[in-house]
């Protein structure tokens, strides 16, 4: 035995202790948390992602939305999240039971999206906003995501979800934007973000 082992053992012990305290213990406490029943609508909440929304979540991840948008509402009296209309209650661990990984984020260059589906329920709004954020939000510094769309200039054979670009944002008039699959999925995911219901722990 020499000092190397004293060091090694001490070093490993400190980290095992912290991972136990910061990850394993909370996991033990929260693991059994399940969904709540909504008896009126006959569903359990939060709703698991499926279909387009599930795919859209992956698009949200690969485009790095988390670097500017959080998905967590802070409690009343701590910040102004609820007053800003970002949610009717604070977020709780239960909200993330289907989130692998959770996309809570740490930066609000843009607003919180925990309940964006309730705040902006229009898919058209989202398509325009994703294509060129300044159409819907003057002064925004969000990057345009034009690569998620196809632009067409004729009204013939337009799919149902095509959106007419406002003339001042169109290089050629008239222009319609047609969402590609990834835009459709992403918007389906954003519309699914709605946690405005009661849970026992945030009453």
């Amino acid at each position: 035995m020499n000092r190397a082992w004293l060091l090694v053992v001490g070093v490993i012990a400190t980290i095992v202790a912290s991972v136990t305290g910061l990850v394993l213990l909370p996991d033990r406490q929260l693991r059994s948390t399940g969904p709540v029943e909504d008896e009126d609508r006959g569903i359990t909440l939060p709703v698991a992602y499926f279909g387009d929304a599930e795919e859209g979540r992956k698009v949200y991840m690969d485009l790095g939305c988390i670097y500017c948008h959080t998905q967590q509402v802070r409690p009343e009296g701590f910040g102004a999240d609820i007053e800003r209309g970002w949610g009717m209650r604070r977020s709780v661990a239960r909200d993330y039971i289907h989130d692998e990984p959770p996309l809570m984020g740490t930066m609000r260059t843009g607003p919180d999206l925990m309940n964006i589906g309730a705040r902006q329920p229009s898919a058209q709004w989202h398509y325009l906003h994703l294509y060129e954020p300044r159409i819907t939000s003057p002064g925004s510094i969000m990057p345009p995501h034009r690569f998620l769309f196809e632009v067409r200039h004729s009204a013939d054979g337009l799919p149902e979800d095509a959106v007419r670009l406002p003339d001042e944002f169109a290089r050629r008039k008239p222009s319609w934007i047609v969402p590609r699959d990834r835009a459709r999925w992403l918007v389906a995911y954003l519309l699914s973000l709605d946690h405005n219901y009661e849970v026992p722990e945030a009453r």
């Binding site: 004293l6 490993i12 012990a13 202790a17």
Partner: peptide, 28 residues
């Protein structure tokens, strides 16, 4: 799994303290 982890954590913590005591005694 948890039992093993707790056991491991306890063991490591105890051995760190033991090593520290030993080192002090030896005049390190």
């Amino acid at each position: 799994f948890y039992l093993a982890l707790w056991g491991l954590a306890g063991l490591l913590g105890a051995s760190a303290i033991a090593a520290l005591v030993w080192a002090i005694r030896r005049g390190e």
